[in-house]
Amino acid sequence: MKSDKLKFLLFAVVVLAIPLFIPKGYLTNVLIFVGINSMLALGLNLLLGYAGQISLGQAAFFGLGAYGSGVLNTQYVINPWLAMALVAVGVAAFAFAIGFPVLRLKGHYLAMATLGVGVIAYISFNETVDLTGGPSGLSGIENLSIGSFVFDSDIKNYYLVWSFALVSILLAMNMVNSRFGRGLRAIHDSEVAARVMGVNARLMKVQVFALSAFISAIAGSLYCHVMTFISPTSFSFPVSIELLTMVVIGGLGSVFGSVLGALLLTLLPEMLRAFQDMDIIVYGLLLISMTIYLPGGLVRGIPALFRKIVPARGSHA
């Protein structure tokens, strides 16, 4: 427990200090999106890594959050912070409502149903032109502000997004070590056994689904205010798959695994630009080798690899 707190503090200090040590500009901008992706991956990881329920429709909640905030900001006079809270609660309530029928399904059927939710949301963003601007997108969204302090630069947005990400991480860490979190892991291992032990599996699955939608919606709101423009392609099916990849590569059932996955999958394509036209192939090869050689995800694989190398050196000496 104590080491968890220490880990979090260390992580928070690193996150807050990073902008002081990197060159201003582009990298800070990319790290903002790492923060947003971390929240999304964390949301999915709670559902998939802890409770063992897959979702291929996370982009829907991300998009609902973004469009909710975006539409409220451009077409109605409402405080954007209040809008963000309302939208997040609304999206969570929506997830809660659809969670009951959807989460009765298991395995492939659950994957199909959540995929359906994602596709329906994507089509709605495209077709409700009057509200969302349709395929050409919604522009003119304002940056967030507190009084006269406007979050209008990369560095300000970095701290904005990462404060939300850090709070989500802290809450998630507390949650997974609570009674609720243990219940979720019990469901993951065996739903029948969990129910025999007195865990209300059905309700808990829906609750964690709603929680994951809540975090995704907040990430969506932040995204729309940082970008100031949104279009449906940012919330399409491939985005859900990318989030899934982040969680699997980072480490299922690990809070920091989500962050690591988000960091890797957001930064890697940028670093691979040096390979020019070959970058996609290198990217694919790296992902394949990571899933083969680090099956537990980066968060478990890297320490294991480290242990393997270090004693080997020790025996030689």
Binding site: N29, V30, F33, G137, M227, F229, S234, E270
Partner: peptide, 8 residues
């Protein structure tokens, strides 16, 4: 073709 990437 990704607008987030275009902005970055």
């Amino acid at each position: 073709g990704d607008s987030t990437k275009a902005v970055q």
